[in-house]
Amino acid sequence: TRVETATETAWISLVTALHLVLGLSAVLGLLLLRWQFPAHYRRLRHALW
């Protein structure tokens, strides 16, 4: 049971790290898009909202 718990903890930390990385890359990508294509971003936002 001790090994299982350790594996579970490792998986949880791995998944958390993955989610953090994905979230950060998504935010960075959005910022980059907004910085590179302001007109396109505004049009996209206008279409979405």
Rank of each mutant, 00 (worst) to 15 (best):
T1D: 07
T1H: 12
T1L: 13
T1G: 06
T1N: 07
T1V: 13
T1A: 14
R2T: 14
R2Q: 14
R2I: 13
R2V: 11
V3S: 01
V3W: 00
V3L: 10
V3I: 14
V3K: 02
V3T: 01
V3D: 01
V3E: 00
E4K: 11
E4I: 11
E4R: 10
E4G: 08
E4Y: 12
E4Q: 11
E4A: 12
E4S: 11
E4P: 02
T5L: 01
T5V: 03
T5F: 02
T5R: 01
T5D: 02
T5Y: 01
T5K: 02
T5M: 06
A6S: 14
A6W: 05
A6E: 08
A6G: 14
A6R: 11
A6F: 06
A6H: 07
A6K: 10
A6I: 05
T7D: 05
T7A: 13
T7I: 11
E8V: 02
E8Y: 06
E8C: 04
E8A: 06
E8F: 04
E8G: 03
E8H: 00
E8Q: 03
T9L: 12
T9H: 11
T9G: 12
T9I: 13
T9Y: 09
A10H: 08
A10C: 02
A10S: 13
A10T: 11
A10K: 10
A10E: 14
A10D: 07
W11F: 11
W11H: 09
W11R: 01
W11S: 01
W11E: 01
I12N: 03
I12W: 04
I12R: 08
I12Y: 09
I12C: 06
I12L: 12
I12K: 12
S13N: 07
S13Q: 09
S13F: 13
S13P: 04
S13T: 14
L14R: 03
L14N: 02
L14V: 09
L14Q: 01
L14S: 03
L14I: 09
V15W: 08
V15H: 07
V15D: 00
V15C: 06
V15A: 01
V15N: 01
V15M: 09
T16F: 10
T16R: 00
T16M: 09
T16K: 01
T16N: 04
A17N: 01
A17H: 01
A17K: 00
A17S: 09
A17Y: 04
A17T: 08
A17I: 11
A17P: 03
L18P: 02
L18N: 03
L18C: 01
L18V: 08
L18K: 02
L18G: 00
L18S: 00
H19D: 02
H19V: 02
H19R: 04
L20F: 11
L20C: 12
L20T: 06
L20V: 14
L20A: 12
L20R: 02
L20P: 05
V21C: 12
V21A: 14
V21I: 12
V21T: 12
V21Q: 04
L22Y: 04
L22R: 02
L22A: 14
L22G: 06
L22V: 14
L22S: 11
L22W: 06
G23P: 06
G23E: 03
G23S: 09
G23K: 01
G23V: 14
G23C: 13
L24F: 11
L24K: 03
L24W: 08
L24G: 07
L24V: 11
L24R: 01
L24I: 10
L24T: 05
S25A: 13
S25I: 01
S25N: 12
S25V: 12
S25K: 04
S25E: 01
S25P: 05
S25D: 08
S25G: 05
A26V: 11
A26M: 12
A26D: 00
A26R: 04
V27L: 12
V27S: 09
V27M: 13
V27F: 12
V27Y: 12
V27P: 02
V27I: 14
V27N: 03
V27K: 01
L28N: 02
L28F: 08
L28E: 03
G29A: 15
G29P: 07
G29T: 15
G29Y: 01
G29V: 14
G29N: 01
L30W: 07
L30M: 11
L30R: 02
L30H: 05
L30A: 13
L30F: 12
L30T: 08
L30D: 02
L31M: 10
L31D: 00
L31Q: 08
L31T: 14
L31H: 04
L31G: 03
L31F: 10
L31N: 02
L31K: 05
L32Y: 05
L32R: 04
L32A: 13
L32S: 09
L32P: 07
L32I: 09
L33R: 01
L33H: 06
L33E: 05
L33F: 06
L33P: 06
L33V: 09
L33K: 01
L33D: 04
L33G: 04
R34Q: 03
R34A: 06
R34T: 08
R34M: 07
R34G: 05
R34C: 08
R34S: 08
R34L: 02
R34K: 15
W35G: 15
W35Y: 15
W35I: 15
W35S: 15
W35C: 12
W35R: 15
Q36Y: 15
Q36A: 15
Q36K: 12
Q36D: 04
Q36S: 15
Q36V: 15
Q36T: 15
Q36H: 15
Q36I: 15
F37S: 03
F37D: 06
F37E: 03
F37K: 03
F37T: 06
F37Y: 15
P38M: 13
P38N: 15
A39N: 14
A39F: 10
A39M: 15
A39G: 15
H40W: 08
H40Q: 14
Y41I: 13
Y41Q: 01
Y41E: 07
R42Y: 14
R42C: 08
R42G: 14
R42N: 15
R42D: 11
R43Q: 08
R43S: 09
R43Y: 08
R43G: 07
L44K: 02
L44D: 04
L44T: 04
L44V: 14
L44M: 09
L44H: 01
L44Q: 01
R45K: 15
R45S: 06
R45N: 00
R45V: 07
R45A: 08
R45F: 05
R45Q: 08
R45Y: 07
H46C: 13
H46E: 09
H46M: 08
H46I: 05
H46G: 09
H46W: 03
H46N: 13
H46S: 10
A47C: 08
A47D: 03
A47N: 10
A47E: 05
A47R: 14
A47G: 08
A47M: 09
A47L: 08
L48K: 04
L48D: 06
L48M: 13
L48E: 05
L48Q: 04
W49S: 00
W49C: 03
W49Q: 05
W49G: 03
W49V: 00
